[in-house]
């Protein structure tokens, strides 16, 4: 004869088991597929396009994001099949231009003078967000570094620059060092960041290098990544001619004209254009000529690069 308590316990036990049983099933709906039914895929043939490349001073994603809207604008405005390509390094950029794989090149003036030597022709240059077509370079160090107060203090320190081909990130500050009697050999160590401005900032911030040379405006790019108060701008170079659009040798001048015309049509006052220009880090695009970049050639000669 079961007691009342025993009956209650048995009932609770059965109820618990009954409650648990539904959880044991597998009732999630599934889409039927047959993985055995397979095909050999063949890539669709790509149509001929005009290649557009941004000197890889930033990552591909940043480069893509900056120029995606501009390219879309140019595609729509000119009707030309413009397509952005992404060289990995400055050297590869130059070589791709040389091989004809880049039709429209957006590069710094120092690279440009090298491209010009390969036959490229400048047809436009940008107006910096500052409102001028010029830009400068900066020498940075950590805010808390007490040993570096002047440019002369940089002697014997470890230096990281953007790239040997970088204008604002290497050439301009190097000229400044030369002006203060400091040569490359005077640094304890010189390293390059494969053309990536952000890498220079982050390397200095990490303490891996004492000083870094960057293009002016880079700090604004990394403002969302680091605390800018941790970085001190030790010196800033004079202004030099800014970034330039050039067409490779042999590219159809008519297409160059159409593209240039579309570029020159961009108006900062136009909200749509303003967005395109802002994303690309410029405030306008104006006509350019090869002679505009002679100061660069002079600087290169001064520092012994050319």
């Amino acid at each position: 004869m079961m007691t009342r308590a025993a009956k209650c316990l048995a009932t609770l036990f059965l109820a618990a088991v009954m409650l648990m049983l539904p959880g044991c099933g597998d009732s999630e709906p599934a889409l039927e597929v047959d993985l055995t039914r397979r095909e050999r895929l063949v890539a669709p043939e790509r149509q001929k396009t005009i290649t557009y490349a941004y000197l890889p001073q930033y990552s591909r994603t940043v480069s893509f994001q900056r120029h995606r809207a501009l390219l879309e604008y140019l595609r729509v405005t000119t009707g030309l099949p413009l397509h952005q390509v992404f060289p990995d390094t400055f050297d590869e950029h130059i070589k791709m231009v040389q091989r004809g794989e880049i039709d429209i090149s957006f590069s710094n003036p120092f690279v440009y003078i090298q491209l010009a030597e390969l036959g490229s022709t400048a047809f436009a240059k940008i107006v910096e967000p500052t409102g001028t077509p010029d830009f400068s370079g900066q020498i940075i160090c950590r805010s808390d570094n007490p040993t570096i107060r002047t440019i002369e203090d940089c002697r014997g320190k470890r230096l990281i620059a953007v790239d040997p081909g970088s204008a604002g990130g290497f050439l301009f500050p190097l000229g400044l060092f030369y002006d203060h009697g400091i040569r490359l050999d005077d640094f304890a160590e010189v390293e390059f960041a494969q053309g990536k401005q952000e890498k220079v900032v982050l390397a200095v911030l990490a303490g891996a290098y004492d000083i870094g040379t960057i293009r002016k405006g880079t700090l604004d790019v990394v403002a969302g990544i680091i605390d800018l108060s941790d970085i001190r701008v030790l010196a800033e170079t004079r202004n030099y001619p800014g970034w330039v659009y050039s067409a490779r040798q042999g590219f159809d001048p008519a297409d160059v004209g159409v593209i240039a015309e579309a570029m020159f049509s961009l108006d900062q006052a136009n909200p749509e254009h303003s967005g395109i220009l802002g994303a690309a880090g410029m405030s306008g695009i104006i006509p350019a000529h090869d002679a505009d970049y002679d100061p660069i050639r002079e600087l290169a000669v001064k520092v012994g690069i050319r």
Partner: peptide, 11 residues
């Protein structure tokens, strides 16, 4: 040995 074509639009 080829790609299962059922997967292309499956998700």
């Amino acid at each position: 040995g080829g790609f299962p074509v059922d997967l292309m639009r499956a998700n």
